[in-house]
């Protein structure tokens, strides 16, 4: 079947092999986003400190592009993704979706905007599906909640179409989550995210739990869907190779902060931040792909706890290029080359 049948006439787009980035319209604007979790102790459960999971992050996402977010565990990349669609309430800062500030809207006001237009795909699709509901009723629920179609027939039609789009048989409507393999479940997770025709999809480690041969199927599917439905992705992952493949621009996070943000080719060819350099050099490279392993920068020690961030630049405890100023002053996140932002004293 033709996947374009699904689209409303106004939404129909030319299908191209390559992604077309004709518009540079901003879809999502994030300003100084912060998410602190209180640390409580004692009988009275007094707040004794904060875990700064996301600490003063600003960026924007253009329509139709894929922004990759990379970082190691505990760097706050998932918390950031969840704060964007208010699964977590941000502590401070603003998130603008298509020009509307969504940070202070009530749940009722949110519903037509982010609950419909922003969707999320999770790492473990099994944990995010109700085991007691058939696939059909799981996918039906959002359609009912948003009153998008009046008759059951229309809804079923929509769901069947959607299952075909993500590469599942339409008869799988009557099956339950445990009857699918890992790769198929991730396709269900994608179908559920697509059911309301969203504009922005946040994929949090969407392919990390899958085997290599299944992973490449899902990556290809995500790319196809993007060009068919003109979707915008925020692709959160710890896997630098996957992000390089799928993203247009890449942001690197460390301890709750964005340390570098650039077009992917600039970032991978010439990383500027010492952390990005170390991160990229640490990835094991398959031999005979025509490249030599980069001189490896092995970072000493572990990531400090986000509850007890070091003063100054958060990376200074492990940085091979540390200077005096790094211990006391927080570097500003600013543009040092066209479209290449970085937070490091070496470039200020």
């Amino acid at each position: 079947m033709e996947s374009t049948d699904l689209l409303e006439p106004t939404e129909r787009l030319e299908l191209g092999k390559t992604k077309q980035l004709t518009t540079q319209e901003t879809l999502l604007q994030v300003r100084n986003l912060k998410k602190y979790f209180p640390v409580k102790a004692g009988i009275l459960q007094r707040t004794v400190g904060h875990v700064k999971a996301v600490d003063d992050i600003s960026f924007h996402v253009n329509k139709g592009e894929t922004l990759g977010i990379v970082g190691e565990s505990g760097c706050g990349k998932s918390t950031m993704g969840r704060s964007l669609i208010r699964l977590y309430e941000p502590t401070e800062g603003n998130v603008l979706f298509d020009g509307t500030d969504i940070t202070n809207l009530s749940e009722r006001e949110l519903r037509p905007i982010i609950r419909r237009k922003m969707q999320m795909i999770f790492q473990d699709p099994y944990a995010s599906l109700n085991p007691r509901k058939s696939l059909g009723s799981t996918l039906n629920e959002p359609l009912l909640a948003h009153k998008l179609y009046s008759s059951k027939k229309e809804r079923d039609e929509k769901i069947k179409d959607l299952l075909n789009v993500v590469g599942l048989h339409s008869s799988s409507m009557n099956y339950y989550p445990h009857e699918f393999s890992g790769g198929q479940r991730q396709r269900i997770g994608i179908a559920r995210a697509l059911v309301l025709n969203p504009e922005l999809i946040i994929a949090d480690e969407a392919v990390s739990a899958l085997d290599v041969s299944i992973q490449s199927q899902i990556i290809n599917l995500l790319e196809d869907l993007q060009s068919t439905f003109n979707l915008t992705y925020i692709f959160i992952s710890h896997d630098l190779s996957v992000v390089r493949h799928i993203a247009d621009r890449v942001g690197v996070m460390y301890l709750g902060k964005l340390v570098e943000l650039a077009n992917k080719n600039d970032l991978y060819a010439e990383p500027l931040h010492p952390y990005t350099q170390a991160l990229l050099s640490a990835v094991p490279v398959i031999r005979n792909t025509g490249v030599q392993q980069k001189e490896r920068i092995v970072l000493k020690g572990d990531i400090p706890s986000p509850a007890n961030q070091p003063p100054g630049c958060v990376f200074h405890t492990r940085c091979p290029a540390k200077m005096k100023i790094c211990e006391t002053q927080i570097p500003e996140f600013k543009e040092v080359k066209p479209n290449h932002l970085i937070a490091c004293h070496l470039y200020q």
Binding site: V212, Q215, E223, S241, R244, H245, V285, V291
Partner: peptide, 16 residues
């Protein structure tokens, strides 16, 4: 099937 960190591939190979 493995995305490479070096170099650009238009589309990943996938085993059906």
């Amino acid at each position: 099937s493995v995305p490479k960190i070096e170099g650009e591939i238009e589309r990943l190979y996938s085993i059906p």
